Amino acid sequence: MTVTSAWLSPDSQTRADTRTAQIGALTPVTDIKGRSGVLPGSDGGVYRVTGLWLAGTTGTMSGTVGVGRAVVQSSIARGAYPVAVTEPVPLTFTDGDALHGRIDLVVLRIYDDEYDGSGRSEAAVEIVRGTPAAVPVAPAVPDVSLPLFTVAVAANTSTGGGGIPWTTASTDLRPTTVPLGGILPTRSDDTAAGGYPGHYRDITDTLQRWSGTAWVPYPKGLGGIAPAGALTTGGYSGQYRDTSAGQLQRWNGTAWQPAVPGPAFAQSLDAGYTTSTTYTSTLTDTAVTALTLNFTAPPSGSVIIALGARAYTTSSETTTAHMSPQVTLGTTVIWAADDERAASGSGAVGKSVSTQLRLNSLTPGATYTITAMHRSTSSTVPAWFDTIYLRTDPIA
């Protein structure tokens, strides 16, 4: 027999059965049940798992499930069935339906007459045939079975008609399991929860730890800088990572922030005007509805804010055009626009005006927004602003 299971045969258990099927305790799912799966491993350690691989024969309806070891977990009373496939198992798929395609399921199935009354006490690799349909779906996994692959069988598929296109028709479903305490190698679509806090898995080349509620990327080299692409979520506040753009970032507990906040800059080269005598962010006759600039507060909590524009007042030498910053944290106004903090100009000829201000007592790591606010000192004289800019520089 090429498919054996320890502690299953009612007649006898050979020493070879015991040796090939014995794999030890497996990845826990509960305090008494384990995770069903194929044991990982490959010759030379090149692949995550090669056991029970389905290889099709080009131009035919035939395939072969290769050797490998697996565990199939059943109920608490029945326990887990260790299985070893010691020789390749040939499979033949029935021809396709005349009208519709179907999806077949390849499984490793346990028959145990003591519990299921099947008259069989053995492990088997077999095909569960799907139902032809306009939009076919895979059949349900039989009880006490481990899904290995799905195989799409198109309408009118047969050996004489070219057979199954194996490179595109089969989908790998094989879950993995490892001895208790081992790091579980998984596929990128594996959504199963961990068995306990401190349980580790390797997924998409990233080591993750089960926190009790979620898989959390494990820091690569505690205290070191994680390479670009290695982490999407930080493992601890103060962790650093490189980005694909070459920027060094620091995890603040909820988000990645620039490790060294640099100057931030925004500008508008489209002129606009206002006749509002109170500060407004909106200018008329411009495509820029409001000029804003976001910046991250540095560890010192202090920045220099610079702003400026080319300002003039239409046909008036006495009206003044004021531009002042408004600083907000979310919806909270930290600095309201004020003439004391304004860059101001007057006259019918445009003049470049600017000012610099120091803002203190910011929350380090928080993101603030500066909005350019404008007003005229006369409701009948348009105050024009062109080449508007905002800039912040962190203070150490």
Rank of each mutant, 00 (worst) to 15 (best):
A193L: 11
T319A: 12
A309E: 02
L357D: 00
A123I: 01
P147G: 00
D189Q: 04
L357I: 00
A155L: 08
Y218I: 06
A77E: 15
T176L: 12
L91K: 11
W335P: 07
D339A: 07
H322L: 08
L180T: 15
A70G: 06
D116I: 09
G162R: 03
S324G: 00
T320V: 14
F265T: 02
A311R: 05
S211L: 05
V137N: 08
S74C: 13
S237Q: 13
D104V: 01
Y200G: 12
W166N: 08
Y200Q: 15
A21T: 13
A306C: 03
R241Y: 03
G345T: 01
H322K: 05
T377P: 01
S379E: 07
T331P: 12
L91Y: 13
D113K: 01
P179F: 10
Q22K: 09
L99Y: 13
W256C: 04
Y273D: 01
A264S: 14
T332Q: 14
I164W: 02
T14I: 09
D339K: 02
D338N: 10
K220R: 13
Y273F: 15
Y218C: 11
V3M: 13
A55E: 14
P136W: 02
V107E: 04
L146Q: 06
G212N: 03
R187Q: 06
L231S: 10
A84N: 12
F295N: 03
S158I: 07
H100N: 12
P40N: 05
L52H: 07
G68P: 11
K351I: 12
S5Q: 13
A6H: 06
S268D: 13
A309V: 01
A152C: 06
Y368N: 00
I23T: 08
E122K: 07
K220P: 14
T278I: 10
V85M: 15
V141S: 03
G350H: 03
A77F: 12
A230Y: 11
A230N: 11
G68H: 07
L105I: 06
V135D: 07
T27E: 03
D202N: 15
N252Y: 01
R120N: 12
L248R: 05
L248P: 03
V135R: 05
T313C: 14
T371M: 02
A123G: 07
D116E: 07
R78S: 11
Y196K: 06
G198R: 08
T30K: 01
A366G: 06
L248T: 04
T20K: 11
L26Q: 11
V216N: 05
H199D: 15
R35C: 06
S302A: 06
A290L: 08
V125N: 04
E317Q: 08
A77R: 13
P263S: 04
V260R: 09
Q326I: 04
V3Y: 08
A214V: 12
D112A: 05
T284Y: 15
G130I: 09
P82V: 02
N252A: 03
G347H: 04
V216Y: 02
A155F: 10
S5V: 15
R209K: 14
S12N: 13
A336P: 14
P298F: 01
S268H: 02
L231R: 10
L359R: 03
P40C: 02
E317F: 09
A70K: 11
L108S: 01
D112N: 12
V333W: 07
G130S: 12
A348K: 10
S237P: 09
T232H: 10
A383F: 09
R69E: 14
Q13N: 12
D205K: 11
T369A: 01
P165Q: 03
P132Y: 01
V106F: 07
